[in-house]
Simulated assay, not measured.
Amino acid sequence: MSLPPERAAFYLACLQADSARLLEVGRLGLTSEVPSCQGWTVETVLRHVATVYLHKIEAIRIGARPDPWPPAGLDDRDALELFDETRAAIVAALVEAGTEKPTWTFSPSDKTSGFWYRRMALETAVHRVDAELAHDVVTPVDRALALDGIDEILTLMLGGPWWEEGDTEHPVDATIRITSAGRSWTIRLDATSAAVAAGAEGEVDAEVFGEPDDIFLWLWGRHDLSMDQSAGDDAAVREFRARVAESTQ
């Protein structure tokens, strides 16, 4: 899958901005608890994201999933120093690889380094919000990035063949529509499938709508819906959100 140069530049800019903000918030205090990730502190967030960056740097370098993983000694590093070092390194690795280098990804359709441009930008945005929540200093996710993130979580993480064995605690049987900033996704769910289609065709059991930042963070469990952001079967919406959470574990 070819990633246009202007889109690659956009993802890199978002990655750099959000990682800088995450470092800034980390310096407000590492021990603050993260309400969106039970048992985590801001230090946990920084170490997690740094380890994710290192994993993707190695995957791009060797063109395969790193094994064994993780490397030894990371827990001994200063969290702020480690994060600052790795946030620069992931940008350098992506720039050096470009967008067409064959590598391991978890996407069935995109096995190029370009995949990691978007994924790392979105990973960073979500965890930047985690750290901000810990200090009650939340800032919005870039609107275009959040809209792209809605598409990623629905089409890549929720959609696909992952449910064929009925391996879910939330076998919701419903059709849900997500609408934000002029785009819609219609999701047909049952115990063994999750089919995601772009557009607003057909009848649905429930619809969720709102600004990209709100919907993106709700899908990732970092934001609650307000009373006027959904219509239809409330129980189906709750079960849909729980199914999304399963797909991102």
Rank of each mutant, 00 (worst) to 15 (best):
D214M: 08
D214A: 11
D214T: 14
I215T: 08
I215A: 11
I215S: 03
I215W: 08
F216D: 03
F216L: 10
W218Q: 04
W218I: 01
W218T: 04
L219M: 01
L219K: 08
L219P: 13
L219T: 10
W220G: 10
W220Q: 01
G221H: 03
G221P: 10
R222S: 14
R222E: 02
R222L: 07
R222Y: 08
H223K: 15
H223I: 00
D224H: 13
D224W: 02
L225K: 10
L225F: 05
S226D: 11
S226N: 02
M227N: 00
D228V: 07
D228G: 04
D228I: 04
D228T: 02
D228L: 03
Q229E: 07
Q229G: 04
Q229N: 05
S230H: 12
S230T: 07
A231N: 03
A231W: 11
A231Y: 15
D233M: 14
D233H: 15
D233N: 12
D233P: 03
D233Q: 05
D233G: 07
D234C: 03
D234M: 03
D234W: 05
D234E: 08
A235K: 08
A236R: 12
A236G: 07
A236P: 11
V237T: 06
R238P: 06
E239M: 04
E239P: 12
E239L: 02
F240V: 07
F240D: 10
F240E: 13
R241L: 09
R241S: 09
A242Y: 13
A242K: 07
R243T: 13
R243V: 13
R243E: 15
R243Y: 10
